Simulated scan of single mutants.
Amino acid sequence: MKITQKPTLYTLLTLAIFLLYSCGEKTTQDTNTNQSPSFENKGHELVYHMVKKVGDYQTLASKKDVTYTYTYTTPDGKSDISTEKYIFDGELSYGLYQQHERTLPELNGPIEQGYDGQTFWLKHNGKLLTDTTALKRVAFNRPTNFYWFAMFQKLLDPGLNYEFIGEQSIESNNYNVVKITFDQVGDKVTDTYQLYINKETSLVDQFLFTVADFGVIEEPYLMQLTYEPVADMLIPTKRKYKPSDWNATVTDAPWITVNWTNIQFDNGLEIADFKK
C-alpha cells in the first residue's frame, strides 16, 4: 500500500524538532548530576537553574518510564489523540492513535507507532505496514513526541550554545531571555530557541522557536506553557503555539494546542512492550 501526503505545518514542525533531537540524541551531561557545573555564561546558568526547578534528566530517568494521553489540535478543529508510552533509558517510544485526523488521516481505524531502540514500525488495525512514506512519518513522530516531553531536561545536553539576550517585561512579568542554538552536525539544519524565563518563578512561561527546513529559516513560532505538578516534577502539560516574531509578538493567528493528560510514571514497561 502506498500512502502520499502533502507537506503541512505539522510536518515541518515535526521535522525541525526531529533534527534538533538528532543533534543531542541519547546523550547526557554533567549538568544532569547533583554537582553544580562550570557555567559557560549567564545564559547557561539560567537554563541550569530552570531545569533544576522543573526536574532534571536524572530525576526524569529515575522514573524509568511514562504513559500519558497526547492531544494535538489544529485551528481547523482536526486532532490527533494518542496514548503515549516511553522508556527513558534508550528513549523508546510508542503511540496508539485512537484518532489521527492529522497523522495519516487516509487510514481508518487505530494506528500504532513504535520505536524499540533500533527500528521504527507502524501498524494499522493490528497489521504491520511497510510503506516507506508512512514509516518516515513514524520516524518523525516517535522521537519528536519524546523530545517535546523531555525538552527542558535535554536543554542541558552537550552540543548546545547559550546566550543571555537581556531582560524583558511582558504583561507585568519580568523575564530573563536566553537564546539557545545547536552545534551543526554535517549538513543537518538546526533551529533556534529563545526562552523567556520568569525571574520570579524560574520557569519558562513561553519560548520562540524556528522551523529550519531544507536550509530555509522561517520566522519564529511562539509557544506558551502552563505547568502541572506531577510526582516531584513540574510538567508543561498545556501548550499552544502560533507564528510570531523575535519580539514575541502575539499575532491574530489562531493557536495550535497540545495537551498532555493522565500522566503516569514508573509503570513497569519493558522493552518487549515496544517491539512490533
Rank of each mutant, 00 (worst) to 15 (best):
I197D: 00
N174Y: 03
D157G: 06
I271C: 11
G159M: 02
D30G: 13
D89K: 08
V185W: 15
W121M: 12
T83C: 07
I3W: 08
N267A: 00
Y193D: 00
K52I: 14
A272G: 11
K154A: 06
A61Y: 11
N259H: 15
T226G: 09
I271M: 13
P143G: 01
I217V: 11
F152W: 13
E219M: 05
K53I: 08
T8C: 10
G114A: 10
Y221N: 05
D191R: 02
R142F: 04
Q224R: 09
K240V: 09
D65K: 00
G90A: 09
F152L: 07
G117C: 10
F120K: 10
Y10A: 12
T261V: 01
Q29V: 09
R142E: 06
N125M: 15
N176T: 03
D89A: 08
V204C: 02
T33V: 15
V189E: 13
K238P: 07
K199S: 05
I197T: 04
G109W: 07
K85F: 04
L46Q: 07
T133W: 09
T130C: 11
V258Y: 12
F140D: 07
E228Y: 01
K53V: 06
P143L: 00
K2Y: 11
G77F: 09
A231L: 00
K6I: 14
T210M: 06
G166C: 02
D56V: 12
S202Q: 12
T257G: 14
T83M: 05
V177Q: 02
Y115W: 12
M223P: 04
V204Y: 03
L104T: 06
S244C: 08
S244I: 02
V54Y: 08
P236M: 10
V216C: 09
R142C: 07
D245W: 04
S82G: 13
T11Y: 15
D245A: 10
N267H: 01
D191M: 13
H124C: 13
S93K: 00
L160N: 02
P243L: 11
T210C: 08
D76E: 14
N198Q: 03
A150V: 05
Q58P: 10
V178G: 03
Y72I: 07
M151W: 14
K188W: 15
E40H: 04
R102A: 10
G186A: 08
S79I: 07
T144M: 05
M50G: 05
I81C: 03
T4V: 10
L12Q: 14
E171D: 01
N41D: 02
I111D: 02
F140Q: 08
Y10S: 13
I180Y: 03
D213C: 11
T261L: 04
F140G: 06
L135Y: 12
F274C: 08
S79N: 14
A231K: 04
G114M: 10
L135D: 13
Y196H: 02
K2G: 06
E163D: 08
E228P: 03
M233N: 02
I235C: 02
L92A: 02
P105K: 11
S22M: 09
I111S: 04
D89Y: 08
E163S: 04
D116N: 14
Y86C: 06
T119N: 14
T226C: 06
P254F: 15
G55R: 05
N34M: 09
T119R: 12
T237W: 10
Q153R: 09
E84Q: 14
S169T: 15
N125Q: 15
N173G: 00
L225H: 01
N34A: 12
L156E: 07
